[in-house]
Design a protein around this nucleic acid. Structure first.
Lengths: 203, 203, 203, 203
DNA sequence: CATGAATGAGGATTCATTCAT
DNA sequence: GATGAATGAATCCTCATTCAT
């Protein structure tokens, strides 16, 4: 979890090297999975010797953890955007078409599943995820609470928490649907999502 | 996808040997994951030499595939129960509390994630899952269609499919919530699920 | 230290395989040192795949430890022989020529030094050695005590212990002389050893 | 054997840089052993980049060799002191208590063993040691010869050489006793050493 | 049918050494 | 002179799989 930053004389270069590794990892992980991707494969994709990677990461686990942490950071950013909107709840429903598309993009869900599976076995990764989910949920929770109050809906803690979790489950479940049913009718799905999200958030 | 059934002089004994292996695998997989479980571990749990397993399965992948197929078969059975009910749709909503509990039982979701991750990498396993999902969906679809017609709700193909997928996503997403938020408030979640499921199935 | 004996159906074969490994190790260790000898080298010398060695030994350290334990066992046997003699103390002095030759045989001292160095760094090996030295000393101590009493010499604990340690040091130091001064005059050395040993044991 | 002295514009600075490295090496070697100490560790202790060390030493082996040479030089100095005494032989016996203490100090014997082991494998180091031992022996030899003649004892070459080697063995063996028997009774040992040394040198 | 001994490829990691700056 | 980024070879170990018995 703790990103061991070895001292480097040129922190910018170091940062860019770490980027290279993480980008390479993104490629390899989605191609071969966390464990299918060898350090050799990653190092080749990163344009750097395998040994050198260890100057930037403590080991393969650290790469995975850093990678997960980044992924997770991205979600936090999206939520911060959402928070800025006039009526975030309505925005979630209105923009759910895009969200559905995003969650079902092959690269996206493949990587997500990889992360989930790793977390279910690797406690370090699990810790990163649980922590990230907590931050994400906290942010999201504030949005939902404010939104529901503004809409004059029940906004007690339990209700909020329940709706929150169900909503997240609905989105996270998309990766699994993409896996199980690659040819599903996305248009129809999106309509259903508007119904489901509307019910969970705005009723 | 079709599991190679080797010729055996005594097919019954062979069948029981396969069972032993699959039961042992169930134990080991849920303990150590698909890849964490070694053939040696499985063979010991199965009370049989490692080499001998290869008389019943083509390899570790075949065990995983057979195992997944069984798991997946179990869901189909649950649905068959559901089909018998008077008002299956209402039953889904009414009994969602139990469903939530089931989907969030650690053994359940851990194994599910294992399966998902494997499917995203192993085409044989993916095929088994896609096929099983298809069967399950077909069954479920009939239930939903009949139910909605009976309730006088829109029951065109696209609507049915959309609601179906969203409903399944909602349930499958539960495993991911269990992973991300081990301490979530299940009571609140169940109330939200009744709302979400009601909207998706009965509106 | 604990020799992990994996279960083998044919314990005799297993024993002989372990022998092969230990013999190969003896060769490789004296050729290249403990750390210079790679598992690959050892496995080739043992006529067995590298992987297979791990069915008999927990790892390289375990091979080293087992190897040391054997070496050490050999000394105990020599002492048991000594114990049987009529006048063991006199025998030590009288036969010191042979002892000197043995301790200065290149294979002998090279291996000894390897063991000493390993023990000074590897606590597991050190434990084996300290323990072995204790057993050896105990045996030797009894011989010296009985011998001195019989010769009517001081035989209080402190005197015995001091003479004992000095005598052992004298012999163990031989390996170091062989290393430092390969061409030393062995005949002259043997005469001096008779003087030294006589003084330490019989005066 | 001859340590390659690279050309440096400022030989004095170079000399002091070499010192830094050797001092750092002393620290690291006694902490981690020759092979346990990495160039990175040494370079950090020396306050100098790893790469830069190669401007002063041909490689790690060269550092070890230089280090050993220094160590070995120290012994020669001790002997020169001894030579000055009135009755050096008696002094050896009389001061043997101190010698025993010195040889059994953990830092001392640990490093010695490291050196011995290295020498048994690394011909360059062995050469340094053999050579050093020769010089030391020559010095010591003169002392013993003069001493014995003065005491009216046999002083033919063979006798001298034999006694010499045995005496050295007795001292060098101390490192091995310290390793094998950390809790030995030093007082008793010292008494025994006086006996042994007396016999070897003064009889 | 059944065993488990044996293989061998493959993977993560370390570290002495080089070299552009 | 001095740096430390970069290399790549070498090492230990694991494990699915095969096969003689």
């Amino acid at each position: 979890m703790s990103i061991t930053e070895k001292r480097h004389t040129d922190p910018e270069r170091a940062q860019s090297r770490r980027r290279q590794v993480l980008d390479a990892a993104a490629l390899c992980f989605s191609r071969s999975g966390f464990h299918g991707a060898s350090m050799a494969e990653i190092s080749k994709a990163a344009g750097m010797s395998a040994g050198h990677i260890y100057n930037y990461f403590d080991g393969k686990d650290a790469i995975i953890a850093a990678f997960v942490e980044e992924e997770v950071e991205r979600v936090a950013l999206l939520l911060r955007d959402l928070e800025q909107k006039d009526d975030p709840l309505q925005a979630i429903v209105d923009e759910s078409d895009n969200s559905v598309d995003e969650h079902m993009a092959p690269d996206f869900w493949r990587l997500k599943l990889e992360i989930f599976a790793e977390a279910s076995r690797n406690p370090k990764v699990a810790a990163v995820m649980v922590n990230a989910d907590l931050r994400m949920r906290t942010q999201f929770r504030a949005i939902v609470k404010a939104g529901r109050e503004r809409h004059g809906l029940a906004a007690d803690d339990a209700t909020i928490d329940g709706r929150l979790e169900a909503t997240i489950a609905l989105f996270q479940g998309l990766a699994l649907r993409a896996l199980h049913h690659p040819e599903l009718d996305k248009a129809a799905l999106k309509r259903a999502y508007r119904v489901g999200l509307g019910a969970l958030l705005l009723s």
